[in-house]
Amino acid sequence: MAIFNAKNRIIECKLVYYGPGRGGKTTNLEYIFRAFNKHTSSEMVSINTQGDRTLFFDFLPMGLGKIRGCDVKIQLYTVPGQPKYKSTRKMVLKGVDGVVFVADSLEIQRKANIESLKDLAENLAQENKNIFKIPLVMQYNKRDLEEKGIPLMPVELMQRELNSKLKVPYYEASALKGSGVGATLKEALLVTLRHLQKELQWTK
């Protein structure tokens, strides 16, 4: 639920990184925090449990400066990926404006990706939002592990299984090394702001 303050020309929106547990959502935000520090207005908040698993969410506020006379502020969140934290994911998704789905390229995570995407669709529906309409970008993470001889799913297979119906923009990435992270974020911001522009007419 983006907030548009017409008087002060400020727009605030919420972008959520979703995906299976241990897929690299937090690593994405950590890289963004380090690499885009000019745009980050405060510390990144992470609420983790043992084994560095996200327990509640990560939160990173960013300022994009002025776009067509409006001060644009973005809040980036991650959700805990483990299936047992469904209610927390629902809570974090409240008022979401755009989603980055971080899919894990590891072959052993094939089922987890599909289940997480299904969970996203269900949770969005409960928020009266449609996965086919919400600004969404797909990221195929951990592509760097191919070099280490670890079995990964081919991108074509991931596209077929996760994106053949959604047909949203997708990026190959290695959140650990940072490749593809910026491109994913930029595209997610672009589609989200474009959507909000249409919805709120905030550039007029």
Binding site: R22, G51, D52, R53, L106, I108, L145, K148, G149, I150
Partner: peptide, 18 residues
């Protein structure tokens, strides 16, 4: 060797069951 490498990587990734 390959299986050991895989299992060890899954562990570092926090994929304990896997």
């Amino acid at each position: 060797k390959r299986a050991l490498r895989e299992a060890s990587l899954y562990k570092t990734q926090g994929l304990l069951e896997e």
